[in-house]
Simulated scan of single mutants.
Amino acid sequence: MSAHRSALLRKETVAEGTLALHLRKPVGFAFKPGQAIDLVLGAPELAEASRRHAFSIVSAPHESHVTIATRMRDSAFKRALAALAPGDALDMDGPFGSLTLHNNVARPACLIAGGIGITPFMSMLRHATAEKSAHRLLLIYSNRRPEDAAFLAELEDLTRRNDRFRLVATMTGMDTSKQPWSGETRRIDAPFIAGVLAEMPESIFYVVGPPAMVASVLSALEAAGVDGDYVRSEEFPGY
Rank of each mutant, 00 (worst) to 15 (best):
A113W: 09
G87M: 09
G225R: 14
M92G: 07
R136A: 11
V168W: 04
L111M: 15
E147H: 04
F151T: 06
A30P: 00
D175N: 13
V208A: 07
G225S: 14
S203W: 11
R144A: 08
D229C: 12
T170M: 05
V66K: 03
V14F: 00
R10F: 13
S182D: 06
A49S: 14
T129F: 02
V27M: 05
L218V: 14
N103T: 15
D227K: 13
T18M: 07
T185P: 05
L9C: 11
T100Y: 03
M213N: 05
A15Q: 00
E131D: 05
R73V: 09
I57E: 00
D91A: 13
F55Q: 07
Y239F: 12
P61Q: 03
R10V: 11
M1N: 03
M174N: 02
A109N: 13
T185G: 09
T129R: 00
A169R: 00
A134I: 04
A7P: 00
L8V: 12
F96K: 07
A85Q: 15
S59H: 02
M213Q: 12
I116L: 08
S75R: 11
A3E: 14
E222H: 13
A224G: 06
R5Y: 10
T170C: 08
S123C: 07
R79C: 03
R126L: 04
A15R: 00
I204V: 15
Q35S: 10
E154T: 10
V66C: 03
A220Q: 04
H22N: 05
P44S: 12
A198C: 11
A130F: 09
L19C: 02
A54D: 03
L9V: 14
L90G: 05
